[in-house]
Amino acid sequence: MTTTPLRLMAVHAHPDDESSKGAATTARYSAEGVEVLVVSCTGGERGSILNPSYGRDITDLDEMRQVRTVEMAEAAQALGVQHRWLGFVDSGLPEGDPLPPLPPGCFALVPLEEAAAPLVELVRDFRPHVITTYDPTGGYPHPDHIMTHRVAKEAFHAAGDSDRYRDRGQPWEPLKLYYNHDFSMNRIRSMHQAMLDAGLESPFGDWVESRAAREIPEREVTTRIACSDYFDARDGALRAHATQIDPDGFFFAIPRDLEIEMWPVEEYELAESRVATTTPEDDLFAGITGNEGLSA
């Protein structure tokens, strides 16, 4: 029996999410010969310019989509991964009290089966053994992140069912579903204290002190992936998203030697598994042989 390459699919809401959530993990697995596909559900059209040094504003959705398409290609190259768009339109982050309605036609308002159909097709085409995405809260309450969770979970369950999405390719059953934990409060508090102990100003102070942060529930961590050798690749991918990432800002405020010493891993929650595995894990493919789905 021939062993096929292992395959990992990371499902994200917007371009730049793949670089701030699980990026070093995907870079590591790609470097080790795993086929890695990053999926962006939306084009990030409604993202604001978050980099004060970017130099200009962009208000046109089509122009923003074009700019972020180029950024995403550069980020994928930095990580060494493949990339696909699902083609939905960014919902934006509603603000105010009460919150305004979401824009018509945006990703978060698309009926679930309609939104999941292209991802089911992509799963059946790429045939990932493992899928990663966000937990049911989205990691934070952005409507596109919550919708991404729903769509990825739907595809995980439906892609192997020949009676569902019949016009979307031959069934393929992924084996494990994980949730990213890159912005867990445990990590934030740990890095905040490490910065203070080193006599440095912490970028996490407002998060740690805020009531909202204290009320963020800590989800179970089942899997830690050692990936500090790939922090440079992650940082290169982050910098590729020049509209979103300030090179002198939050993501680069922690000295890399301190980060490697204190937190050299990326964390995940094993949400579902169709193979036997024992937690805690140090490998997203624990319990998977690579022969699944093959005939003898």
Rank of each mutant, 00 (worst) to 15 (best):
H83Y: 05
D135G: 14
G87F: 05
L238N: 01
D235I: 07
S53A: 15
T148E: 02
A276W: 07
S162A: 15
R274A: 03
G287P: 12
A240I: 05
P171Y: 07
H145T: 11
T26A: 04
T243S: 10
A108H: 02
L93M: 15
L177I: 09
F107C: 10
G160H: 02
T59Q: 12
R124W: 04
A116R: 09
Y268V: 01
H129K: 13
R224K: 09
E218W: 02
R46W: 06
Q66F: 10
W172H: 14
A213M: 13
R214Q: 15
R219E: 09
L284T: 01
A237L: 05
S184A: 14
D229R: 14
V110M: 02
Y140C: 03
R84E: 14
F126M: 12
I216M: 11
V123S: 13
D16P: 02
S202H: 10
E18P: 00
P100L: 02
I216L: 09
L122M: 06
L61R: 12
D144K: 05
D248H: 15
Y140S: 06
F107A: 05
L112R: 04
R150E: 06
F107R: 06
V67P: 08
G44K: 10
Y179E: 04
H145Y: 09
L99Q: 11
N186E: 14
A198T: 12
G87P: 01
V130G: 07
W85S: 10
F204T: 11
